[in-house]
């Protein structure tokens, strides 16, 4: 594991930089390998380092006081997380956990701001990354605030629970999300809510509707 100009050039923050500009960067970064399930950043911690996924995948999420989890985004190779506390001082707004074996690079606030001061491309790339996150969060706000996703998911489950001519229909969470006009993460939350309420049971690849009347009520079919 060695941070190189080439590996940093694959990060979105540093896209478009000349090889000579990249060659000065490795000394500003640190790296650490995380194993599956390990916490990289904990919500409310004071951590003013922007993190980058070099390999693997990271889940960023918020957890309610009751322990419910809302996935904000999956961070894939080349992408960044924990950018917010660098540009807006305060604690980390979410937790980040390695979903598999993951290699993370990070740079501290002072060094990143220095790079941005001297390199317009890095500044634009950083703004683009933060704007991407803002857009995603606004979509999530819209989905969670204005759409009755649980009702829509309930209706989808009822519509697809009758065996068709070729056997029992099967649906992925992505397909349900596309049907409900929302993100997979929001469908996952709705299915968890339905499971907690006893309306459905998840047994491996089988989703058992155990309270059809309640699902009908949620779907507005009563």
């Amino acid at each position: 594991m060695t941070i190189t100009a080439e590996s940093l050039g694959k990060l979105k923050y540093f896209a478009g930089l000349e090889p000579q500009q990249l060659s000065n960067l490795p000394q500003l970064f640190k790296e650490k390998a995380f194993v599956k399930g390990q916490t990289i950043v904990a919500e409310a911690d004071i951590n003013e380092n922007v993190h980058f996924v070099s390999s693997g995948v990271v889940k960023v999420f918020k957890t309610s006081s009751e322990g419910k989890e809302q996935i904000i985004k999956l961070i894939r190779p080349g992408e960044s997380f924990n950018d917010i506390p660098v540009f807006n001082p305060g604690p980390s707004p979410y937790s980040a956990q390695a979903l598999g074996n993951t290699l993370i690079y990070w740079i501290d606030k002072k060094d990143l701001l220095g790079l941005m001061r001297n390199n317009w491309a890095v500044t634009v790339n950083a703004l683009s990354a933060v704007a991407d996150q803002s857009r995603l969060l606004l979509q999530l706000v819209e989905d969670l605030s204005f759409k009755n996703v649980t009702g829509r998911v309930a209706k989808i489950l009822l519509q697809h629970s009758t065996p068709g001519p070729e056997g029992t229909p099967r649906l992925t969470q992505y397909e349900m999300a596309a049907m409900a006009g929302t993100a997979r993460e929001v469908v996952g939350r709705s299915l968890k809510a339905l499971e907690d309420s006893g309306a459905i049971k998840l047994e491996g690849h089988r989703m058992i509707i155990s309270n059809k009347e309640y699902l009908k009520q949620l779907a507005g079919l009563n």
Partner: peptide, 8 residues
């Protein structure tokens, strides 16, 4: 990973 949706 599709779910088989079954009604009890």
């Amino acid at each position: 990973c599709p779910f088989e949706i079954v009604t009890l």
